[in-house]
């Protein structure tokens, strides 16, 4: 089992009376991509701010075994904030150089590192342009490049693809996966379900608390308390009675019988077998796929869960 890169224990953040994050605990393992999902105001960005020491908090946060109250620990993190925040009146290169300097990147290392990131971000041609004259996509790429200037062990990305067009979104995620393969641990918040599917594990947050944790399949299962099998038979009421007598949590939904089980793929054959033994041929059977969005909406209290 890989070590934990980030440990958060009993994190509570208050803004005056308002409790933005409430006794939150989770870990990000070394080498994984952990996604944080949650509606606006769920406490995702506040959690990130606490990790970076931008807000005061109660609880414990450690990165690679080191308490985040130490300023040095910030060298291990690359941070890309939600809204664009670089110096508009500096050029692409000057911004990168500034962040390299304050992160303490060695002079000998600096040019090589900058060249490499400019190439990856496809900003070589624009390196002498003032940032205010760049397009939105270029700015976003520059932000990512600046957050990686010091070759951090861990990247914290707060909605990195907000307002980014689909081709660039895809390119960003390909890049994140590449970085992850190179060994970078990534903590990312997102609103996009397809992006969330790319994460090794997910945390669903609501009102400052953790509602669910696990990989995408586990999250979906937990949304219903299990998985669904949809089944139909010639005598629907009879079949329902028999399934209930076998202890299955089932009911008629629309024109099918819905059975809630722990693992739909494993259980489906035995359900079919039971009905067949009672001379109730099964006319329809399906393991119902819940989308991540369904599960997400369920957890955060949406209607169509």
């Amino acid at each position: 089992m890989p070590k934990a890169k980030l440990v958060i224990e009993n994190l509570t953040v208050r803004y005056g009376e308002f409790v933005a994050v409430n006794k939150l605990s989770f870990q990000v393992k070394e080498g994984e991509i952990l996604g944080m999902l949650g509606p606006n105001g769920a406490g995702k960005s506040t959690t990130i701010k606490a990790i970076l020491g931008l807000v005061s908090f109660e609880g414990r946060i450690e990165i690679a075994g080191e308490d985040v109250s130490s300023v040095e620990v910030r060298r291990k993190i690359g941070y890309m904030p939600q809204s664009f925040s670089l110096y508009q009146n500096l050029t692409v290169e000057e911004n990168m150089r500034f962040f390299a300097s304050i992160y303490g990147v060695e002079k000998s290392e600096m040019s090589r590192r900058m060249d490499e990131l400019l190439r990856i971000a496809e900003l070589e041609r624009w390196k002498d342009k003032l940032v205010k004259n760049l397009s939105g996509g270029m700015k976003q790429r520059l932000m990512l490049a600046c957050s990686m200037i010091h070759d951090p062990e861990m990247l914290i990305l707060d909605e990195p693809t907000a307002g980014v067009d689909p081709p660039l979104r895809r390119a960003f995620w390909e890049h994140f996966r590449d970085l992850n393969k190179e060994g970078k641990t990534i903590l990312v918040t997102t609103h996009y379900m397809d992006e969330a599917e790319n994460c090794h594990r997910l945390i669903v947050m609501r009102n400052g608390a953790k509602m669910a944790e696990g990989n995408a399949d586990e999250i979906k299962r937990r949304a219903l308390g299990g998985e669904l099998i949809l089944i139909d038979s010639i005598k629907k009421q009879e079949a329902l009675r028999i399934l209930k007598s076998f202890g299955f949590n089932s009911e008629v939904v629309e024109d099918k019988i819905a059975v809630l089980v722990e693992n739909s793929a494993k259980t489906l054959p035995s359900v079919v077998e039971i009905l067949r033994k009672h001379n109730l041929p099964v006319t329809y059977a399906e393991t119902k796929k819940l989308t991540l969005e369904d599960a997400f909406l369920k957890f955060i209290g949406g209607e169509n869960g």
Binding site: G53, V71, P81, S85, F99, I102
Partner: peptide, 14 residues
């Protein structure tokens, strides 16, 4: 206002 304060506060800059 430009958000750069938050960004540099997240760096080891003292």
């Amino acid at each position: 206002e430009e958000g750069t304060l938050e960004l540099i506060m997240a760096t080891p800059l003292r």
